[in-house]
């Protein structure tokens, strides 16, 4: 004998959640695919304003130029899924590059690939230490990785002696990244492979689910039996490794170490991830980030070709900064519209 004689006839609030506003912006997918629309717009507009824009040479240039930003965006994305910020990825890239370069210069007996692997190992250790500081010492990841980035900057200066290191890599080593397939260097394909791996892990494995759970509600995840600390920690090691890998790409691409390489890529990478978080689905995601990288890159290229007939360096940060602000404002405006509706539906 159950105690409820029958279901209440009237639906409670949860039965009919307020439908999302079906205005024209959502109908054409402007909320989820704004970057794709923007990209298409750039392609059309700039193909009229600049003859060089829609040529394979400039497309190839844009794509290869932005591989490092794409890789660092993935590095930023992994811990961000667990609501953990890694601001050291730019310096991590420089750190990896200096180790690879110094080993190549000072130890010609060591195969340069092994030097690259040593660099990755060093990055993993640095990421492990960041994790230790975040998890064990309970320092906010924002602060912990900001601090770590300066330690890495110091080590980079120490190893390089504050000098540029050039022409130390062998052709066979650089070919690991430069060998072209279909007129695009190998390192471009490395990014594609890495993106597929990160996408698969985040979206289609238990590990990804645990990362998003940890990021969504740390305490609830812990109480559901998720090893939250381990995922935060692990995500920082992974981001360090990916950041280090970006350093290797730089070593293949330019074969050059300079003290200022690395940190400059941090902003565009973060911008791409946040811009990308408003794309496709309402959370940080791999393809949204990748689309954001390319959209921003083509926008910058088009503007540079159109208005200055070449390169005016200030266009890039200005465009990326403004785009980020607009994209995030747009996304959060969508969020703000949702909030009161959600509150109505969940009257607990």
């Amino acid at each position: 004998m159950t105690a409820v004689t029958e279901q209440p006839a009237e639906p409670t609030a949860g039965a009919a959640p307020a439908k999302p506003g079906r205005n024209w912006t959502t109908k054409v997918g402007l909320d989820k695919y704004s970057a794709l629309y923007l990209w298409a717009l750039f392609m059309i507009v700039f193909s009229f304003t600049s003859e060089q824009f829609l040529t394979w040479t400039s497309i190839r240039l844009v794509v290869t130029e932005k591989v490092i930003v794409g890789v660092l965006a993935l590095a930023f994305l992994v811990p961000l899924a667990a609501n953990t910020f890694d601001l050291s990825i730019g310096h991590m890239m420089g750190f990896s590059l200096v180790i690879t370069s110094v080993i190549a210069r000072d130890h010609p007996d060591i195969p340069q690939v092994v030097g690259a692997l040593i660099a990755l190992a060093a990055c993993a250790i640095a990421g492990f230490l960041s994790g230790l500081i975040v998890v064990k010492l309970k320092v906010n990841s924002f602060i912990a990785t900001l601090g770590m980035s300066q330690v890495l900057a110091a080590l980079t200066l120490l190893f390089s002696g504050n000098r540029q290191i050039s022409a130390v890599f062998t052709d066979s080593y650089r070919n690991l990244g430069l060998k072209p397939i279909f007129d695009l260097p190998l390192y471009f394909y490395y990014l594609v492979i890495l993106a597929v791996i990160v996408w698969f892990v985040l979206e289609h494995t238990a590990t990804g689910r645990y990362l998003f759970a940890t990021g969504g509600n740390y305490e609830a995840a812990r109480l559901a039996g998720v090893k939250t600390d381990r995922y935060v920690w692990g995500s920082l090691v992974v981001s360090a490794l990916i950041g280090g890998f970006a350093g290797l790409i730089q070593s293949w691409k330019t074969g050059l170490f300079g003290n200022d390489v690395g940190p400059g890529f941090l902003f565009p990478a973060i911008a791409a991830v946040f811009f990308g978080a408003s794309q496709l689905r309402n959370r940080p995601n791999v393809w949204g980030s990748m689309i954001a990288v390319l959209t921003l890159a083509f926008g910058v290229k088009g503007l540079q070709l159109t208005f200055t007939g070449g390169s005016k360096p200030w266009i890039e940060p200005l465009f990326e900064g403004v785009s980020l602000l607009i994209a995030v404002a747009f996304a959060s405006r969508q969020g703000i519209i949702k909030i009161p509706k959600r509150k109505v539906a969940a009257k607990s």
Partner: peptide, 9 residues
């Protein structure tokens, strides 16, 4: 989950 009422959550 946020779109559900308390009882349903």
């Amino acid at each position: 989950m946020a779109t559900l009422s308390g009882g349903n959550q």
